[in-house]
Computed example of a mutant assay.
Amino acid sequence: MTRPKEQEISVRETADVVDAGPRYSAPALEKGLDIVEFLSRAEKDYTLAQIADNIGRTKGEIFRMLAVLETRGYVERVNDGEKYQVTNKLFRLGLRRPKYKSLAVIATPIMELFAAETRYACHLAVPTGNQIAVITRVECPDPVGVTVRVGYRQSLLETGSGLCLLAFMSAANRNRAIDAIKVDDPWLDVDALEGRLADIRQQKCLIEPSGVMDGVWDIACPILEGVGRGAIAALTVPYVKLVTNPIDPEAVAKHLVNAASRITSALA
């Protein structure tokens, strides 16, 4: 039997309303995620009371949740146990994704060859929200050099890796990243940033003073994911001119461009 047309419209409209919202509610999980997400954005450590206040919960609501998160290794106590900070456990879990595992596996031998040729350390960074995260590194063979630890996170705008990623990632990903940056920096001059990124794209390799360490230069090249899909990672060298290794930054950059190109080709 055919239903009246009006009823068919009513059923579809009801389905649209249901689909528009969350299907299920898990209050305990939401509390845990609120805590982890808040601490992951925090630039300092917080007490239980401060965490509760910032996420709009009571101390009683989050006391047990914090205890479980601490037991499972997602948060840890600092400052004599009075305050909490997020650990790198979620980051380590993320690195187990096949995408990042394969990228690190492919890149590592090429990075090792680069380090042997130039005697400089290098690391591979990927974008995550408004930050970069270092997923693998290769030490320099010399006893003296600058390295960045795996798991290190920093603003996209403060590092050569981040600026390289912003410049060479797809337009859609760049717009999303800039929107994420503007959440923390609503006064960001987007036009000036776009001009700076356009200048970087004119080069094959970024070479500029580090925004984090005085006396260090960032040399960074993009790792591309197919034609037109943009950068998915940045291969970066923290460069300091050493008496024992007088190679200039332009020469290091040439080796880095070659290494990044080989990684890109291997990913194809």
Rank of each mutant, 00 (worst) to 15 (best):
C122T: 08
C122S: 12
C122V: 04
C122M: 05
H123I: 04
L124Q: 10
L124S: 06
V126I: 12
V126Y: 06
V126G: 01
P127Q: 10
P127A: 05
P127T: 13
T128N: 08
G129S: 12
G129H: 09
N130R: 03
Q131R: 14
A133W: 10
V134M: 13
V134E: 11
I135V: 14
I135G: 11
T136L: 05
T136D: 10
T136A: 04
R137E: 11
R137L: 06
V138L: 08
E139P: 00
E139W: 00
E139L: 00
E139Q: 01
C140N: 08
C140G: 14
C140D: 05
C140L: 11
C140F: 04
P141H: 04
P141D: 04
D142P: 07
D142E: 13
D142S: 09
D142Q: 07
P143F: 05
V144H: 14
V144L: 15
V144Y: 15
V144I: 15
V144Q: 11
G145C: 15
V146K: 15
V146H: 13
V146W: 14
T147Q: 01
T147W: 01
T147C: 01
V148G: 00
V148F: 03
V148N: 03
R149D: 12
V150C: 00
V150Q: 05
G151D: 03
G151Q: 05
R153K: 05
R153Q: 02
S155E: 04
S155A: 07
S155V: 03
S155R: 03
L156E: 10
L156C: 13
L157P: 13
L157V: 12
L157C: 12
L157A: 12
L157F: 15
E158R: 09
E158V: 04
T159W: 09
T159S: 14
G160E: 04
G160K: 09
G160I: 09
G160P: 06
S161V: 03
S161N: 10
G162V: 06
G162N: 07
L163P: 08
L163D: 13
L163I: 03
C164L: 12
C164G: 14
L165I: 15
L165S: 03
L166V: 02
F168N: 11
F168S: 14
F168Q: 06
F168A: 09
M169N: 05
A171N: 09
A171L: 09
A172G: 02
N173W: 00
R174C: 00
R174K: 12
R174D: 02
N175Q: 15
N175E: 15
A177P: 12
A177R: 08
I178A: 00
I178D: 01
D179I: 01
A180F: 02
A180E: 06
A180K: 02
I181G: 04
K182V: 00
V183Y: 03
D185Q: 15
D185G: 14
P186F: 10
P186W: 09
P186Q: 11
W187V: 04
L188H: 06
V190H: 10
